[in-house]
Design a protein around this nucleic acid. Structure first.
Length: 808
RNA sequence: GGGCGAGUAGCCGAACUGGUACAGGCGCACGGCUUAGAACCGUGUUUCCGUAAGGAUAUGUGGGUUCGAAUCCCGCCUCGCCCACCA
């Protein structure tokens, strides 16, 4: 018997598959397209993380079964190589990202090949390839032309370590998603994408897509829809008004003061009337220096300053109320100002207590209530109106819209979602293709001049002055205005990496074909993909990836698809009708991280045990969607399993007695893979192998077994398949079908219970009616004894399964 | 603070729609093979009583529904993930 030499077998088949283009579907004319996609990785030269491998293998197993089921499976691969991640790595080891990317790319692709996935290598793409980012830039210019990209000055998230601004989605718990540094606010003018325009659709479409529930919930909360009203408050002795957004217009009569965010325009506007201007300004400056986390940490103790000398008027009861500025009101949500109703809002209550402001109760749990309860906390539940003039006695829900009408307010739906900040003051990214001209303002770079190539500049280190390193390269930024031809300056910021990944899945099938064009009047506009191919292959059949991208990539990518759809470039709105989040792979109970030094490098395990063993081990740990704990010790179980398979396939065949078990296993494995329950599928293979070893196996049965094992262990199965005299790849074989008749049991085991307790197990033929089953069971000696002289109150009968005698 | 999810053997985990709780693997123990060890093969492995047959007991915890609950309902405890002053 030859030795199971995976070190020879695995590279041999990998080469062969590649040269035979085994995993390349016919993109132009495939009859049963199945686009199986896993989120592409961002590479660093440290190489593929075992967590990446876990995710890719899980996706591959599904794709392999689909291929064997007769689908034309397209499983492309590429690199999300632009961005802070790769740039920081280059900074750390002292290389240039442009050179480093070539090294990382080679290493990553080599590793991805070694894990034995069925990738369509011909269509690989890298986001830092000018051929690719030409179109990322094209998308940017179209966004601008369609009014979906705009510039705005506002307080934005700034990472003091990575020296760039960040989108809200990239600030996690007040910290930079990439480096973990405390994020502070900076007042800067930046490029934004108008994702809020699609808030409603992004939310509504969630109902239509089949996604892991936890990801849908995360998106729903992030979008954060709330219904309320816009209400205007007049400023005493002034033309100025303050507009507020509230979800509780029913409590308007209880508004005893107002609060503005530190950035609110009224403060500048009314500067001359504010008596304590110095104090106010000082407060605003102090607040501006605080980081997000400091604000949250101090959140329990609210701070604020009254704007002395000016008052607002409550439009409901015309009472004069004071105005405060406080940082618990955010400039970026609603109108940046609130009406404070301390009796019915926890935050306002706390603030009012601290500054000794009146607390007026206007909602009572009961009506007519002789006395309203004395508040030691805000009463935030619903009830009936009191102290609200003509509205007294109305249920709060009803009063909401009547009061809004009474004060000429407007109903308004407000989203928590903010526009997507896409500028980055870094080097390693897609240059934003915009030109600024003193005369003509902002102009997009004309399509014919794309791409705007990222120059190889020596000093790419971020500068931290709110400018990208590109701003020091005169030859880059000096240009002419595309409109008037005058002297102009290029935008020197780059765009967010998440823009690169927001459309890659459309590009894959079109990598090697000609792009389509749109007719606009008499001219043609080339678009970034081929429409015919796109119609055949998209949307993606199954998308797999990490749940950590719930409100990042997975939100942006949906937004962009909706935009393309509205431009007539795609005929679907949702890019991924089915998405599954895989679990997190941890190591000995702890998260893998560089700082802990416990990152598992797959190379070592592939060398030591083989890719097939590592693949199966990873999948056997726990359900794929749950994640798993990598422990060295238990990899031996799989290693033994494959050795035994090898041994069995190299010994003499004879007929296996239970054809039934084989067919039950076919059914189970098919269902398990469909549901990504790879751990139980592997366990079913083990059970079958155990049976083969004790009862024997025919060649035909063993070949079926190899097909079932093929998605998990593609190399060894291919080797043995050919060893049995087959000339074509096992991965192109038809997936085994179970025989429905064969899996029906002829005999079953009856569970006999007395008072719900298991007392005996009795074999019987299947399909026995209750009476016969009862007779049979009573004949049993033990059961007979237990039932002797007892009164039977009731008998519960579950066909072919159980009979329960209930006594007295 | 809010939302979501989970708690089964020494460990990872299985259990369809409520119907034999713990499949499969790891580990461990004993035995075989071997000069010896590794590897490999076999047997056993919730806990308690019992030589055994068998019996009792057991799915974080306390209740409830049911002939019957890991599964459904309510309270509590613990852990994980996400969000977090969003008016």
């Amino acid at each position: 018997m030859p030795k199971y030499d995976f070190r020879k077998i695995e590279p041999k088949w990998q080469k062969k598959w590649l040269s035979e283009r085994l995993y390349e579907p016919d993109l132009k004319s495939a009859k049963k397209p199945f686009y199986n996609l896993m989120m592409f990785p961002y590479p660093s030269a440290e190489g593929l993380h075992v967590g990446n491998m876990y995710a890719f293998v899980g996706s591959d197993i599904y794709g392999r079964m689909k291929r064997m089921q007769g689908y034309d499976v397209f499983q492309p691969i590429g690199l999300d190589g632009f961005g802070i991640h790769s740039e920081n790595y280059a900074l750390k080891i002292g290389t240039h990202p442009m050179d480093q990317s070539k090294i990382s790319q080679e290493r990553f692709y080599k590793q991805l090949e070694e894990i034995g996935n069925g990738f369509a290598w011909d269509e690989k793409l890298e986001t830092y390839d000018p051929k690719y980012y030409k179109w990322t830039q094209w998308i940017f210019t179209q966004m601008f032309k369609n009014g979906l990209a705009y510039r705005k000055r506002q307080a934005v998230n700034w990472c003091p370590k990575d020296l760039t601004v960040l989108a809200d989605e990239q600030v996690v718990g007040g910290k930079c998603e990439r480096c973990g540094a405390e994020v502070i606010k900076k007042d800067l003018e930046q490029w934004f994408f108008r994702i809020t325009k699609y808030a409603d659709k992004l939310l509504a479409n969630l109902e239509k897509i089949d996604w892991s529930e936890r990801v849908k919930i995360a998106q729903k909360n992030w979008i954060g829809k709330s219904e309320g009203a816009l209400i205007k408050f007049k400023i005493q002795n002034s033309e100025f008004e303050i507009e507020v957004f509230t979800t509780r217009p029913d409590t308007l009569f209880g508004a005893t003061y107002m609060v503005l965010s530190p950035e609110h325009e009224l403060i500048k506007n009314q500067e001359s009337r504010i008596e304590n201007l110095e104090e106010v300004k000082k407060y605003i400056v102090t607040v501006g220096k605080k980081s997000e986390t400091e604000r949250v940490a101090e959140g329990k103790e609210k701070t604020g300053v009254e704007l002395k000398g000016i008052k607002a008027v409550n439009p409901a009861n015309k009472e004069e109320i004071p105005i405060f500025v406080a940082d618990y009101v955010l400039s970026s949500y609603g109108t940046g100002a609130i009406m404070a109703v301390p009796a019915h809002d926890e935050r306002d209550f706390e603030f009012a207590k601290k500054y000794n402001l009146p607390i007026k109760m206007v909602i009572c749990p009961n009506y007519p209530a002789p006395v309203c309860p004395i508040l030691d906390a805000a009463y935030v539940d619903s009830g009936y109106l009191v102290g609200s003039g003509e509205f007294d006695g109305l249920p709060a829900e009803k009063a909401k819209w009547e009061i809004t009408k009474f004060v000429h307010g407007k109903r308004k739906v407000q989203y928590r979602l903010r526009d997507w900040l896409v500028s980055r003051q870094r080097y390693w990214g897609v240059p934003i293709p915009m030109i600024h001209c003193e005369k003509c303002d902002w102009q997009p770079v004309p399509e014919k001049d794309l791409p705007v190539e990222l120059p190889h500049i020596k000093n790419f280190r971020p500068k931290g002055k709110g400018e990208s390193p590109l701003a020091s390269d005169k030859s880059f930024y000096e240009t002419k205005c595309p409109k008037c031809g005058g002297k102009a300056r290029r935008e020197t910021d780059v765009s967010d990496t998440f823009l690169d990944s927001a459309w890659y899945y459309i590009r894959y099938p079109s990598v090697n074909v000609e792009n389509s064009s749109l007719k606009i009047g008499n001219s043609k506009l080339e678009i970034p993909w081929n429409s015919e191919i796109t119609r055949r292959w998209l949307p993606v059949s199954l998308y797999t990836g990490g749940a950590e991208h719930s409100v990042l990539h997975l939100l942006y990518v949906r937004f962009m698809a909706m935009v393309f759809h509205d431009w007539g470039l795609l005929d679907f709105e949702e890019p991924f009708p089915k998405f599954r989040a895989h679990g997190l792979l941890i190591k000995e109970g702890a998260k893998m991280s560089k700082s802990k030094g416990n990152i598992v490098n797959p190379d070592f395990y592939i060398k030591e045990f083989g890719a097939d063993t590592l693949r199966m081990y990873l999948m056997f740990l726990a359900p794929f969607e749950q994640g798993g704990d990598f422990r060295d010790a238990s990899i031996l179980g799989i290693s033994r399993f494959l050795e035994r398979v090898w041994k069995l396939g190299n010994s003499e065949f004879k007929k296996f007695s239970s054809e039934q078990l084989l067919h039950k296993t076919i059914k189970k494995i098919t269902e398990d893979i469909e549901n990504l329950h790879y751990n139980t599928a592997i366990s079913a293979l083990m059970i079958l192998l155990n049976a083969f070893e004790s009862d024997g196996v025919s060649q035909k049965q063993f070949e079926t077994f190899l097909k079932l094992l093929a998605p998990f262990a593609p190399h060894v199965t291919e080797e043995m398949w050919h060893g049995l005299g087959n000339k074509t790849s096992v991965h192109k074989e038809g997936w085994p079908q179970h025989d429905k008749k064969l899996i029906q049991d002829e005999t079953i085991l009856f569970i006999v219970q007395i008072n719900g307790k298991h007392r005996a197990t009795i074999g019987a033929v299947a399909g026995l009616p209750q009476e016969e089953a009862e007779t049979l069971v009573r004949q049993d000696e033990k059961v007979g004894k237990l039932l002797a002289n007892r009164e039977i109150k009731k008998i519960i009968f579950v066909p072919d399964r159980l009979i329960n005698f209930v006594l007295e």
